[in-house]
Computed example of a mutant assay.
Amino acid sequence: MKGMQVILGYHDGRSAAARMVDGRLDDLLIDAADDRPVPGTVFRAICDRPVKGQGGMFVRLGDGLTGWHRNAKGLAPGQALLVQVSGHAEDGKAVPVTDRVLFKSRYCIVTPGAPGLNVARSLTDDDERDRLLEIANETVPERDGTGIILRTACEGIEAEALIDDLTATWDLAQQVLSDDGRDAERLLDGPDAHGLAWRDWDGEASDDWDAVAHQIEALRRSDVNVGPATFHIELTRALVAVDVNTAEGGAGGLKANLSLAREIPRQLRLRGLGGQIVLDLAPMPKKDRKTFESALRGAFRSDPVETSLIGWTPLGHFELTRRRERRPLEELL
C-alpha cells in the first residue's frame, strides 16, 4: 500500500504500534511487560547525593527506583523537585531524569518555567499562525509563567479539537504542578505505544497487525541485506557494534558503506538501539570518508532520535552516540 499508515495492535497482549511507509515498516513501538518508567513519566523526586566531578545528583524516585539528574547546581540533599524521565535506563543503572518537565499532546506542549505562546516554525502561513494563536489565547488567557507551543499537527485543525486538546493538557499540567507532597512518588505515567503513535505520527489508521508481523520477525535477526551490502547489528553491554560486509572489491566498499548510511537510522529506530555505536565499515579509500560522512549525516537529519556523529577511530571505525529513548527491541520481543 502506498502512503503512510499507522497500525495499532497488540504483541503478546501488550499495546503496540507500527508506522508503515509504502508498505515498509518505518517505526515500531511495543510496550514492555514490566513497570519500568518510560520517557515522559513524571516523579516527585528527593535529592539524594551529588557526585563530585560530574555535576550530577542521584535522586530517589519512589517505587524503589533511583534517578540520575545531570545538573545538580543549586540542589541540596533532601530537596524535593519535579523530574521527568528523559530516556530508558540500562538494567541496573539509574533512570535518567530532567527537571525540565514538559506536558506534550498531539497539538500542543505545555512548558512550565518557559513562558510564551509560540507556534511551530514549520507552520509558515501567517494567517494560520494568527488563527492558532488567537484560539490558544482565548482558551488559556492566564498562563502565569507557563508557556505553550502549538505543534505542527495544528495546521488546519478545527478550533473545537484544538480547544479540547489545549484544555485537557493544560489542566493535566496544572494538576501535576500544584502537587505539594514531600515524599518520592510517581505522579504521572508516560504514554504507552498507542498514546505515542496518536501523539507523534500522522497517517491513515488501521488495525491490520498481521501486515507488520512478518516484518517484525525479520528484526529478530542481526543481519540486514541492503543492495550490495550485508551488515550485522549486535548489541553488547558496552555498545552497539555494526559490521559491514560486501562481496564486491574496489569501489564496492564505498557502495556498501553508502547503503549502510541510508539504512542504519531506520534499523536503529526499529530495534530501539542507542548509546555508543561503532561502525566497522567495508574497506574504502580515505578520500571517500567525507562522502560517507555526508551521506550518514543526511540520513540522520530526518530521524527523530537525537544522534551525534563523533568521528573516526585510529582503526578506521566510525563512532556515533544516540539517545536511549527506547528499550531494545530484543528485550520487548
Score class of each variant (00 low, 15 high):
residue 1 M to D: 10
residue 2 K to N: 15
residue 8 L to V: 12
residue 9 G to A: 10
residue 11 H to Q: 14
residue 12 D to Y: 05
residue 13 G to P: 10
residue 16 A to F: 10
residue 19 R to K: 15
residue 23 G to W: 04
residue 24 R to I: 07
residue 28 L to P: 00
residue 28 L to K: 00
residue 29 L to A: 12
residue 29 L to C: 05
residue 33 A to C: 01
residue 34 D to V: 08
residue 39 P to N: 03
residue 41 T to A: 14
residue 44 R to G: 07
residue 44 R to W: 10
residue 47 C to W: 05
residue 50 P to C: 12
residue 51 V to P: 03
residue 52 K to N: 11
residue 58 F to I: 08
residue 60 R to I: 06
residue 62 G to L: 06
residue 62 G to Q: 08
residue 66 T to G: 08
residue 66 T to P: 01
residue 68 W to V: 04
residue 69 H to E: 07
residue 76 A to E: 15
residue 78 G to F: 14
residue 83 V to C: 10
residue 83 V to S: 01
residue 87 G to L: 03
residue 93 K to I: 01
residue 96 P to H: 06
residue 97 V to D: 00
residue 99 D to K: 06
residue 100 R to I: 10
residue 101 V to M: 10
residue 104 K to L: 08
residue 106 R to A: 13
residue 106 R to D: 13
residue 112 P to I: 08
residue 112 P to A: 06
residue 112 P to K: 04
residue 113 G to A: 14
residue 114 A to Y: 09
residue 115 P to D: 14
residue 116 G to K: 05
residue 117 L to G: 10
residue 120 A to V: 02
residue 120 A to K: 02
residue 122 S to N: 11
residue 125 D to C: 08
residue 126 D to N: 05
residue 127 D to Y: 02
residue 128 E to H: 11
residue 131 R to A: 10
residue 132 L to R: 02
residue 142 E to N: 14
residue 147 G to K: 03
residue 148 I to V: 15
residue 153 A to R: 10
residue 156 G to E: 13
residue 156 G to W: 14
residue 158 E to H: 13
residue 164 D to C: 04
residue 166 L to R: 11
residue 171 D to V: 11
residue 171 D to M: 11
residue 171 D to F: 05
residue 172 L to A: 12
residue 175 Q to E: 15
residue 178 S to E: 13
residue 179 D to W: 12
residue 179 D to I: 03
residue 180 D to W: 00
residue 182 R to P: 00
residue 182 R to G: 09
residue 185 E to S: 13
residue 193 A to P: 14
residue 194 H to N: 09
residue 197 A to I: 11
residue 204 E to P: 02
residue 205 A to K: 15
residue 206 S to A: 15
residue 210 D to G: 11
residue 219 L to D: 05
residue 219 L to H: 03
residue 222 S to T: 09
residue 224 V to C: 04
residue 226 V to D: 02
residue 226 V to N: 00
residue 227 G to Y: 07
residue 229 A to Q: 00
residue 229 A to H: 02
residue 230 T to G: 04
residue 230 T to I: 12
residue 233 I to L: 12
residue 233 I to K: 02
residue 234 E to C: 04
residue 234 E to V: 13
residue 237 R to H: 06
residue 238 A to R: 03
residue 238 A to M: 06
residue 242 V to T: 01
residue 243 D to Q: 06
residue 248 E to K: 13
residue 248 E to A: 15
residue 255 K to C: 03
residue 257 N to Q: 07
residue 258 L to V: 08
residue 262 R to S: 15
residue 263 E to A: 15
residue 264 I to S: 03
residue 264 I to V: 15
residue 266 R to H: 09
residue 267 Q to V: 04
residue 268 L to C: 04
residue 271 R to T: 02
residue 272 G to A: 04
residue 273 L to Y: 00
residue 274 G to C: 03
residue 275 G to A: 09
residue 276 Q to W: 07
residue 280 D to T: 09
residue 280 D to F: 03
residue 284 M to R: 02
residue 286 K to M: 08
residue 291 T to Y: 00
residue 291 T to S: 11
residue 293 E to F: 04
residue 298 G to D: 15
residue 300 F to D: 07
residue 301 R to M: 06
residue 304 P to N: 09
residue 304 P to V: 07
residue 304 P to G: 09
residue 306 E to Q: 13
residue 306 E to C: 05
residue 309 L to G: 07
residue 312 W to N: 01
residue 315 L to E: 05
residue 316 G to N: 08
residue 319 E to I: 01
residue 321 T to D: 04
residue 324 R to S: 02
residue 329 L to P: 02
residue 332 L to A: 10
